[in-house]
């Protein structure tokens, strides 16, 4: 089946079974490798993308379920005010170590501050506990989200 997907503002075609997870359409069919595979069961958050602005786990999202919803990935999240601030904060606070989970962390964090201008520690726990980081960057992620919330849109 051929699916027409709206990704990062552009239309893309993919000829796959409808139960194919969006993750593999992005990575293997369309060549957008910024979104990462970590567990395949929505347990680690590495594959997080935005669907109409909401964070979803692309590893368990069948491509046939997406319809006309707009997908945003790590490659383009920097074009949104929230994504830009989160990326800036990640650099300012030197969050990243190996970096592999950070695409997913940044997608979850961007969605958080897009909907919540001043997230509390509990808000951060709720939004970010689905994203595992084995390098252990959690403390810096927490600080960077708070830092991003202070940045102006111009950043």
């Amino acid at each position: 089946m051929t699916f027409s997907l709206k990704i990062n503002g552009a239309n893309h075609q993919a000829d796959v079974d409808p139960d194919t997870p969006l993750l593999w359409v992005l990575r293997d069919v369309l060549g957008m490798t910024g979104t990462k595979f970590g567990c395949g069961m929505a347990l680690c958050g590495a594959c997080t993308v935005h669907l109409d602005g909401n964070p979803i786990r692309s590893c368990i999202t069948p491509v046939g379920s997406i319809g006309t919803s707009a997908i945003t990935t790590i490659e383009a999240v920097g074009e949104t005010p929230a994504g830009r601030k989160i990326q800036r904060a990640w650099l300012d606070l030197e969050v990243v170590q190996c970096g592999y989970c950070q695409s997913g962390q940044i997608m979850s964090a961007s969605a958080l501050i897009a909907s919540n201008a001043k997230p509390s520690d509990t808000d951060i726990d709720n939004a970010m506990s689905g994203n595992i980081c084995r390098c252990g960057t959690y403390g810096r992620i927490r600080a960077a989200i708070k830092h991003a919330a202070q940045l102006s849109d111009a950043n």
Partner: peptide, 9 residues
């Protein structure tokens, strides 16, 4: 090594 690790590159 950080800049390309925050934008998927």
């Amino acid at each position: 090594d950080t800049p390309p690790k925050v934008n998927g590159a």
